[in-house]
Design a protein around this nucleic acid. Structure first.
Lengths: 168, 168
DNA sequence: ATTGTCTTTCATTAACTCTTGAAAGTTCGG
DNA sequence: CCGAACTTTCAAGAGTTAATGAAAGACAAT
């Protein structure tokens, strides 16, 4: 397999993985393209390489900037804007963990906290079962939350070193 | 808040969380309903409680069985099939980890392994950058894979005990 | 103030995914 | 066998989400 084909495959695979995990395909593909591009690219180049429209490219880039995965770059003397992606995979992973925690985990924990406060008849199996499910999920969610938190604070070697040592 | 309302909220929240993580909303809702139901339910009851069609209920239940999250139950002397969900949240978490690993992580690791073998000109920045990105992601994916693996083998208290001890 | 270059917006359109409900299939008792 | 009870399938329709491209906006140079 040669490089051009391999790059194409990578972009496709990344797009597919993204869409399976609730990140839109184009966004994941634009990110993949920038990730494997040593130089910052213009909107035009991204449009061309992925065959997407200007509007789509623009919105997607903006979303990626919102996720903290891509940054704008201004080249002196040029009007055009260039875009480049953070290349350190560990930084990317942490950034994604951080955003998803904020956007999705935190709201759920908030609801679970409320729901676990609901009072009911201790003899009612429906209530008992509901209460147990909610409190159990709440505990799990809080453990996941703590793990994300640790990830955000730790550096890569320390994080995986500690985890994998335990699992060996 | 009273129980009926709380149960409704839980089903909605679970459905929303599911859809944000690439699991269809109805499927997450049916799962939520069975999770908080102390008794196994029939297709009819599920249809009614969630206001969904027979076809939808049937397909969704089948998917949930495919994920290993729901089981059929036959009551002696009855023709109807009853459905119930695994109630242990840790078992559910592991089951989901297991399935997603198999369905999504493994195929990606396979592609990454191939792509990291692609040869190229060591002086070409495009090649160098591509190669580094792919091998770095590959390492990360394999670490995640190992963590899932540990989760599948370990029991809850050991898993979280080990992880959280490291982080504290 | 105007022009040329580049960016952003957003209503429309296209693509995709989910849901429905009726029909076909299955299974069991009599 | 037949018919009742229940389950499964699937084509069509609804609903949702993403992409387009034309138009408006922003900005700098002249």
């Amino acid at each position: 397999m040669e490089l051009t084909e391999a790059r194409q495959k990578f972009i496709e695979a990344w797009g597919k993985l993204g869409s399976e995990w609730g990140i839109n395909r184009t966004m994941a593909q634009v990110h993949a393209l920038l990730l494997i591009s040593p130089e910052a690219l213009t909107t035009e180049e991204i449009m061309e390489q992925l065959s997407i429209s200007r509007g789509n490219a623009n919105m997607t880039l903006r979303d990626l900037i919102g996720w903290g995965l891509v940054e704008k770059q201004h080249k002196p003397g040029e009007r055009k804007e260039y875009f480049f992606a953070e290349k350190d995979v560990w930084v990317i992973a942490r950034q994604v963990a951080k955003e998803r925690r904020k956007r999705e985990l935190e709201p759920v924990i908030k609801i679970l906290d409320e729901l676990s406060k609901v009072q009911g008849d201790a003899k009612d199996p429906t209530y008992k079962n509901f209460h147990k499910s909610v409190t159990d999920i709440n505990k799990l969610a809080k453990n996941v939350d703590k793990t994300f938190d640790a990830m955000l604070k730790a550096d890569e070697s320390w994080f995986w070193g500690s985890i994998l040592k335990v699992f060996k």
